[in-house]
Nucleic acid binder design. Sequence first.
DNA 1: ATGTCC
Length: 484
Amino acid sequence: MDWRRFVERIDDYRWEISRSYKAGMRVPARIYASEDLLRTAADEEAFDQAANVAFLPGIVWRSLAMPDIHQGYGFPIGGVAAMRLDDGVVSPGGVGFDINCGTRILLTNLTEDAVRPRLVQLANQLFRDVPAGLGGEGPVRVTDGELDAIMRRGAAWMVEEGFGRAEDLEVTESGGALEGADPACVSKRARDRGRAQLGTLGSGNHFLEVQALDEVLDEPIARRFGLGDPGQVVVFLHTGSRGFGHQICQDFLDIMEPAQRRYEIELPDRQLACAPIDSPEGRRYLAAMAAAANFAWANRQCITELARRAFARVFERPIEALGMDLLYDVGHNSAKVEDHTFAGRPLRLCVHRKGATRAFPAGHPELPERYRDVGQPVLVPGDMGRYSYVSVGLPAAMEETWGSVCHGAGRVQSRNAAKRMLRGVDLVKRLRDRGIIVRAQNPRLLAEEASEAYKDVSRVVEVLEHAGISHTVARLRPLAVVKG
DNA sequence: ATGTCC
């Protein structure tokens, strides 16, 4: 069966796969994309996955796909689905393996001109100080009891240990800790994998970049976010819950497959393994997922301080003299219980965002006071050779996408295809020729992360701007890249 | 994404 026969054009940036695509879809699947993106980056597997998500019990409104959609485990990456709490399900595949993977930006008061002469030194220092790559041990050793505290308290635990400032928590989504985390729901194996990984970057698309403000697209809002003139240097961090979240996802996939059969939930793909939200399996998953989310926030908080100290060392000034304030921290892999309005009525929902960033508009009570009247900063990483973006959530996001937008550029090439295509290409040199310094733990993995492997993030962000879901505030470009 | 197969 060909999905194209069932794709209906709503407008220039909204497309829907109708319920007639497959018997059993409870709602249509909606894709946010330009015709160009839809055609050239058409990922049939991912579209099929978006349609499969529409089978899940309790799903409300639409199975949603962002313009950076690509194939994932069960759910597409770039997928959003909200379920009713009373008759809905929660699915680990709807969150992803890297639970609460997310981004944060640190502002500096340095300019590109001031940083350039010490850029290589800075890249080297960051590469030394922020452990990266598969495995990898962090600077924090924790006992079992301390790991429990991290699971419950997230970023706040790190701040108390001297990694960061109390103000950092004010500009971290959910204050850097989800409620309801229960260490008793986390396996020993997950603990063992995570114990030494706090303060580590990881591998794959994770990175720590020194970036320059390239273009300001909305000056008043940029100023409110602490972004001033082009050339201002910022630090962009993208990482998650490492092996800890990965193991929790795997543990609950193993638990939910048989549970789903017991609850007699029939789905077109076993990767959509799920359990009712209001079931022992569902509740335990959400409690373990919250623990992993909090681990991810503690991880990003720890790396934040490592980066600040590296800057202070290279520029031989106290951290405070360099600014280094946190702009914001936001996750893009989670299932969160949130209050929304649907068909004019208040509704509490479990919102799965898998490779989709929360983007709440101005006035939302969950926003920090500092940003309450402008809206939530949305941090969208691109690829290491081009751009990243800062956007802001708009009211239409609440009305259509449960306050969600894209999370990045999205792949156009599989990791293997990118590796094949770029065999023999010296990517480090190619980037250096363009003024971008790359330090990678495993340079052989760099091909998988090359610009060619990704869509142009500018085109992705543009879709959401034109659709009125989010508003683009500023464009950033990389100066130095630290990768696993 | 991931001690890329306990």
